[in-house]
Design a protein around this nucleic acid. Structure first.
Length: 340
DNA sequence: AGAAGAGGTAGCGTTACGTCA
DNA sequence: TGTGACGTAACGCTACCTCTT
């Protein structure tokens, strides 16, 4: 048996209600109502899948400082034009002190074994970027950086001993604790980076911009995964609660229906205010009752006024005696009496 | 004004490597 | 010492956007 939610007075709010500007956790989310609709506006470092939405806007940004501080993709997109114009004279993939004089081919073969210049589109671009980076580091800076970063790995030191024979294996450099900490801090501030931020961070951490970019991509993925797990758990709890509530209300409905079918139910039922009219003389005795049901508690049998009841009882005794003398048709229509 | 191409980024899925029990 | 599980850096691909031509 299914019970309409209207019948049960149970409704599930599906509209957005709360601000979502802060990182949500399982602890502070569970008490909140289920929120399945995207909010009207939210910018979060850890957007829930329910909260994620893409604001597409064409509004222009004119301030580079705003752009530099931007965090989400939307703003990054908006600022891109500014970035490009700003960087028009700067090769993003080139270190400021570049004096690239060493043949790039060799370096590419060593540090980017998977880079294929023949690939198209984004891959090509990224390959070129990596190659450019590596080439730009041809003066030894980037190589030194790479070695340093691999050395500095807390427990990953010396794991790149295959620098020479690893042409077909991709390199995986363990980031040091300091590097990870700084990246984490930056990610807390903004989970996306514009090119200038990326460059600055890469330089600060002695990493390639591509590495910073990859780290942020992976970090976003991890955040999303974690958030998805939290949301999943949250929905599971919601489902359990609703199931339990539904079970309880169905039981209540069954009980009420059973009571409704029982004649005793009517025997005990008394209107909140009882107007008892004598069928013979049409005199009305008003018996006020304490209306417990109006207060929302379980319905109680109203207690009529004792005095009124007694008076009516006496009156009925008198009338009964008269009616015995004068039998009347029980179905005879009584004159209409205004009850008010 | 609209189309096409280039350049850039994010998201997603996957792979490969490093670490640890 | 070998091995499987796990975390994560890196890659490949696609979609989308903006800008330029």
């Amino acid at each position: 048996m299914f019970v309409e939610k209207e019948d049960l007075g149970l409704s599930l709010s599906l509209c957005s209600s709360t601000s979502t500007t802060t990182t949500t956790t399982a602890e502070n989310r569970y008490p909140l109502q289920l929120n399945l609709m995207p909010p009207s506006a939210s910018v979060s470092n850890n957007p829930s899948p329910f909260l994620i939405h893409h604001q597409k806007t064409n509004s222009g940004i004119t301030n580079w400082n705003e752009a530099f501080g931007s965090s989400d993709r939307m703003t990054a997109e908006m600022y891109r034009g500014e970035t490009r114009s700003f960087l028009r004279g700067i090769d993003v993939n080139r270190m400021p002190s570049t004096t690239a004089t060493i043949d790039c081919e060799e370096e590419v073969g060593v540090s980017s074994p998977n880079s294929t210049v023949s690939s198209i589109s984004g891959n090509k671009r990224r390959s070129i970027e990596r190659d450019t980076i590596n080439c730009s580091g041809g003066d030894g800076e980037d190589n030194e950086i790479e070695r340093a970063s691999s050395r500095s790995g807390g427990n990953g030191g010396g794991m790149n001993s295959d620098d020479e024979d690893g042409e077909n294996s991709r390199k995986k450099l363990r980031l040091s604790k300091d590097q990870s900490a700084i990246l984490e801090e930056t990610f807390k501030e903004h989970n996306t980076l514009n090119p200038k931020q990326k460059l600055a961070l890469a330089k600060q951490l002695n990493l390639r911009p591509r590495q910073v970019e990859v780290w942020f991509q992976n970090r976003r993925a991890r955040t999303k995964l974690k958030q998805t797990e939290v949301d999943c758990e949250f929905l599971k709890r919601c489902c359990e609660n609703l199931t339990e509530e539904n079970r309880r209300l169905q039981k209540e409905v069954q009980e009420l229906r059973a009571l409704k079918l029982s004649p005793q139910f009517y025997m005990q039922m008394t209107p909140p205010t009882t107007l008892t009219m004598c069928p013979s003389c049409e005199r009305v005795a008003v018996s006020a009752s304490t209306n417990a049901s109006a207060a929302g508690s379980t319905p109680a049998v109203p207690a009529p006024s004792v005095a009124a009841e007694a008076a009516l009882h006496r009156h009925h005794q008198q009338m009964s005696a008269q009616q015995r003398a004068l039998p009347t048709n029980p179905w005879a229509q009584a004159p209409v009496v205004s009850r008010r």
